[in-house]
Amino acid sequence: MGTEGDKRRALLLCACIACILIGLSLFVLDPLSLRKEKEEPPTEVSWAETAEKGKILVYVVGAVKNPGVYEIPEGSHYYDAVKAAGDVLPYADITAVNMAEPVTESMKIWIPLDPSMKDSGAAGLVNINTAGAKELETLPGVGKVTAEKIMTYREEHGSFSTKEDLKRVPSISDGKFKKLADKITL
Protein backbone atom coordinates (compact mmCIF):
# COMPACT_ATOMS: atom_id res chain seq x y z
CA MET A 1 0.00 0.00 0.00
CA GLY A 2 3.02 2.25 0.41
CA THR A 3 3.43 2.55 -3.33
CA GLU A 4 -0.16 3.57 -3.93
CA GLY A 5 0.13 6.25 -1.23
CA ASP A 6 3.33 7.46 -2.86
CA LYS A 7 1.51 7.62 -6.21
CA ARG A 8 -1.28 9.70 -4.64
CA ARG A 9 1.23 12.05 -3.04
CA ALA A 10 3.12 12.40 -6.32
CA LEU A 11 -0.15 13.05 -8.19
CA LEU A 12 -1.23 15.58 -5.56
CA LEU A 13 2.19 17.24 -5.74
CA CYS A 14 1.97 17.44 -9.56
CA ALA A 15 -1.54 18.92 -9.32
CA CYS A 16 -0.33 21.53 -6.81
CA ILE A 17 2.64 22.44 -9.01
CA ALA A 18 0.34 22.70 -12.05
CA CYS A 19 -2.02 25.02 -10.13
CA ILE A 20 0.89 27.16 -8.99
CA LEU A 21 2.24 27.41 -12.55
CA ILE A 22 -1.18 28.31 -13.95
CA GLY A 23 -1.66 30.93 -11.23
CA LEU A 24 1.78 32.41 -11.82
CA SER A 25 1.29 32.52 -15.56
CA LEU A 26 -1.99 34.42 -15.12
CA PHE A 27 -0.36 36.79 -12.64
CA VAL A 28 2.68 37.40 -14.85
CA LEU A 29 0.97 37.53 -18.26
CA ASP A 30 -2.02 39.70 -17.28
CA PRO A 31 0.03 42.69 -16.13
CA LEU A 32 1.99 42.47 -19.37
CA SER A 33 -1.20 42.73 -21.39
CA LEU A 34 -2.29 45.69 -19.25
CA ARG A 35 1.03 47.43 -19.91
CA LYS A 36 0.52 47.02 -23.65
CA GLU A 37 -2.89 48.67 -23.38
CA LYS A 38 -1.41 51.58 -21.43
CA GLU A 39 1.33 52.08 -24.03
CA GLU A 40 -1.14 52.59 -26.88
CA PRO A 41 -1.25 56.19 -28.09
CA PRO A 42 -4.16 58.40 -27.01
CA THR A 43 -7.09 58.87 -29.36
CA GLU A 44 -6.54 62.64 -29.49
CA VAL A 45 -4.64 64.02 -32.46
CA SER A 46 -1.06 64.59 -31.42
CA TRP A 47 1.51 66.87 -32.99
CA ALA A 48 3.20 63.83 -34.57
CA GLU A 49 -0.06 62.66 -36.15
CA THR A 50 -0.74 66.15 -37.42
CA ALA A 51 2.73 66.26 -38.96
CA GLU A 52 2.24 62.83 -40.53
CA LYS A 53 -0.99 64.00 -42.17
CA GLY A 54 0.81 66.98 -43.66
CA LYS A 55 -1.08 69.41 -41.40
CA ILE A 56 0.17 72.10 -39.05
CA LEU A 57 -1.43 74.04 -36.20
CA VAL A 58 -1.44 77.86 -36.22
CA TYR A 59 -2.91 80.42 -33.84
CA VAL A 60 -4.74 83.25 -35.60
CA VAL A 61 -5.68 86.35 -33.55
CA GLY A 62 -6.41 90.03 -33.94
CA ALA A 63 -8.78 91.51 -36.49
CA VAL A 64 -10.23 88.21 -37.75
CA LYS A 65 -13.80 86.95 -37.45
CA ASN A 66 -13.05 83.80 -35.44
CA PRO A 67 -9.71 83.95 -33.60
CA GLY A 68 -8.35 80.58 -32.51
CA VAL A 69 -6.13 77.60 -33.28
CA TYR A 70 -6.56 76.06 -36.72
CA GLU A 71 -5.23 72.96 -38.44
CA ILE A 72 -4.22 73.83 -41.99
CA PRO A 73 -2.24 72.00 -44.68
CA GLU A 74 1.52 72.10 -44.46
CA GLY A 75 2.92 74.63 -46.95
CA SER A 76 0.06 77.09 -46.34
CA HIS A 77 0.44 80.85 -46.15
CA TYR A 78 -0.92 83.63 -43.93
CA TYR A 79 -3.79 83.99 -46.39
CA ASP A 80 -4.90 80.37 -45.82
CA ALA A 81 -4.71 80.71 -42.04
CA VAL A 82 -6.75 83.94 -42.09
CA LYS A 83 -9.38 82.29 -44.33
CA ALA A 84 -9.58 79.39 -41.84
CA ALA A 85 -10.30 81.98 -39.13
CA GLY A 86 -13.27 83.32 -41.10
CA ASP A 87 -11.38 86.11 -42.93
CA VAL A 88 -10.39 89.57 -41.74
CA LEU A 89 -12.72 92.11 -40.18
CA PRO A 90 -13.51 95.31 -42.13
CA TYR A 91 -11.15 97.36 -39.95
CA ALA A 92 -8.14 95.02 -40.29
CA ASP A 93 -4.86 96.41 -41.56
CA ILE A 94 -3.97 93.73 -44.10
CA THR A 95 -1.25 95.95 -45.61
CA ALA A 96 0.75 95.45 -42.40
CA VAL A 97 0.88 91.68 -42.96
CA ASN A 98 2.42 89.76 -45.85
CA MET A 99 -0.52 87.48 -46.69
CA ALA A 100 1.74 85.45 -49.03
CA GLU A 101 4.22 84.61 -46.24
CA PRO A 102 4.47 80.86 -45.51
CA VAL A 103 3.37 79.67 -42.08
CA THR A 104 5.10 77.15 -39.84
CA GLU A 105 3.97 74.80 -37.07
CA SER A 106 2.77 76.56 -33.89
CA MET A 107 3.01 80.02 -35.45
CA LYS A 108 0.98 82.89 -34.00
CA ILE A 109 -0.51 85.06 -36.72
CA TRP A 110 -1.65 88.49 -35.57
CA ILE A 111 -3.75 90.68 -37.85
CA PRO A 112 -3.57 94.29 -36.57
CA LEU A 113 -6.26 96.95 -36.65
CA ASP A 114 -6.15 99.61 -39.36
CA PRO A 115 -4.63 102.68 -37.67
CA SER A 116 -6.76 104.96 -39.88
CA MET A 117 -9.84 103.62 -38.08
CA LYS A 118 -8.84 105.70 -35.06
CA ASP A 119 -9.31 108.80 -37.20
CA SER A 120 -12.73 107.70 -38.46
CA GLY A 121 -16.10 107.73 -36.73
CA ALA A 122 -14.94 104.91 -34.47
CA ALA A 123 -12.34 107.19 -32.87
CA GLY A 124 -12.00 106.63 -29.16
CA LEU A 125 -14.18 103.52 -29.21
CA VAL A 126 -12.85 100.23 -27.93
CA ASN A 127 -13.46 97.24 -30.17
CA ILE A 128 -14.65 94.47 -27.87
CA ASN A 129 -13.79 91.81 -30.48
CA THR A 130 -10.12 92.71 -30.85
CA ALA A 131 -9.07 94.81 -27.85
CA GLY A 132 -6.41 93.50 -25.51
CA ALA A 133 -6.58 93.69 -21.73
CA LYS A 134 -4.97 97.13 -21.46
CA GLU A 135 -7.36 98.65 -23.99
CA LEU A 136 -10.40 97.04 -22.34
CA GLU A 137 -9.28 98.42 -18.98
CA THR A 138 -9.68 101.95 -20.35
CA LEU A 139 -13.45 101.42 -20.30
CA PRO A 140 -15.37 102.70 -17.27
CA GLY A 141 -15.86 100.02 -14.64
CA VAL A 142 -13.62 97.50 -16.43
CA GLY A 143 -10.60 96.43 -14.45
CA LYS A 144 -8.07 93.66 -14.98
CA VAL A 145 -10.44 90.87 -13.88
CA THR A 146 -13.33 91.99 -16.09
CA ALA A 147 -10.99 92.52 -19.05
CA GLU A 148 -9.75 88.93 -18.63
CA LYS A 149 -13.35 87.68 -18.46
CA ILE A 150 -14.17 89.50 -21.71
CA MET A 151 -11.15 88.00 -23.48
CA THR A 152 -11.88 84.52 -22.10
CA TYR A 153 -15.49 84.75 -23.24
CA ARG A 154 -14.30 85.83 -26.69
CA GLU A 155 -11.88 82.89 -26.90
CA GLU A 156 -14.52 80.37 -25.82
CA HIS A 157 -17.53 81.73 -27.78
CA GLY A 158 -16.00 83.65 -30.68
CA SER A 159 -16.50 87.28 -31.59
CA PHE A 160 -19.38 89.34 -30.26
CA SER A 161 -22.14 89.76 -32.88
CA THR A 162 -23.78 92.74 -31.17
CA LYS A 163 -22.74 95.14 -28.45
CA GLU A 164 -25.46 93.63 -26.22
CA ASP A 165 -23.67 90.26 -26.36
CA LEU A 166 -21.20 91.81 -23.92
CA LYS A 167 -23.86 91.32 -21.20
CA ARG A 168 -23.28 87.56 -21.50
CA VAL A 169 -19.84 88.02 -19.93
CA PRO A 170 -19.94 87.28 -16.20
CA SER A 171 -19.88 90.53 -14.17
CA ILE A 172 -21.24 92.73 -17.00
CA SER A 173 -24.62 93.78 -15.63
CA ASP A 174 -27.24 95.88 -17.42
CA GLY A 175 -26.06 98.91 -15.46
CA LYS A 176 -22.41 98.42 -16.34
CA PHE A 177 -23.34 97.80 -19.97
CA LYS A 178 -25.23 101.13 -20.13
CA LYS A 179 -22.03 102.91 -19.03
CA LEU A 180 -20.04 101.06 -21.74
CA ALA A 181 -22.46 101.02 -24.69
CA ASP A 182 -21.44 104.35 -26.20
CA LYS A 183 -17.70 103.64 -25.70
CA ILE A 184 -17.49 100.28 -27.50
CA THR A 185 -17.69 99.06 -31.06
CA LEU A 186 -17.54 95.74 -32.91
Rank of each mutant, 00 (worst) to 15 (best):
L186V: 08
V60A: 00
F27S: 07
A15S: 10
L11S: 10
C16V: 07
V88S: 09
E37L: 15
V69A: 13
S25G: 03
D80M: 06
K183V: 00
D119L: 14
M117Y: 14
E39S: 11
V126F: 11
G132A: 07
G62E: 02
G132C: 07
T162W: 00
K53Q: 14
D174Q: 07
G124H: 11
P140T: 01
L12D: 06
L12H: 05
G75N: 11
V61W: 00
V142K: 06
I184L: 02
K179L: 06
G23E: 06
I184C: 01
I22A: 10
G75M: 04
M107E: 15
T185E: 02
T152M: 05
N129A: 09
N129T: 09
V45S: 07
K65P: 00
L125F: 12
E101Q: 15
E49G: 11
G54F: 08
P31L: 03
T95S: 14
C14S: 12
H157P: 01
I72R: 02
A48H: 12
E44H: 12
K65W: 02
G23P: 04
K55V: 09
C14L: 14
G62M: 03
A92I: 05
P73N: 11
E39W: 10
V103P: 08
F177K: 00
V60I: 02
R154F: 02
K53D: 06
L11M: 06
A81D: 03
G23W: 05
F160S: 04
P42S: 10
D114E: 12
D114F: 10
S106W: 09
G5N: 09
K183N: 09
R168Y: 01
V64E: 00
A15L: 14
Y59L: 05
H157A: 01
S76T: 05
V169T: 05
C14Y: 09
A81P: 06
G132H: 07
G2Q: 13
E49R: 14
P112D: 04
P73G: 08
M1E: 06
K118N: 11
T185L: 01
E101R: 15
V88A: 13
W47K: 12
L12G: 06
S106Y: 14
G132Q: 06
K134C: 01
V60F: 01
M117K: 11
A10Q: 13
A48T: 13
H77P: 00
Y79R: 15
P102E: 08
A63G: 00
L21T: 07
P102T: 07
L89C: 04
A51W: 08
W47V: 12
V145E: 08
S106K: 15
K144Q: 13
W47L: 13
K36D: 10
V145Q: 06
Y79I: 08
K163P: 01
F160T: 02
V61I: 04
T104M: 10
T130R: 05
A133W: 01
E49Q: 15
K65G: 00
A100Q: 15
L24G: 13
E71R: 04
V169D: 02
G143C: 12
I172Q: 03
G5R: 14
G5F: 12
A123L: 05
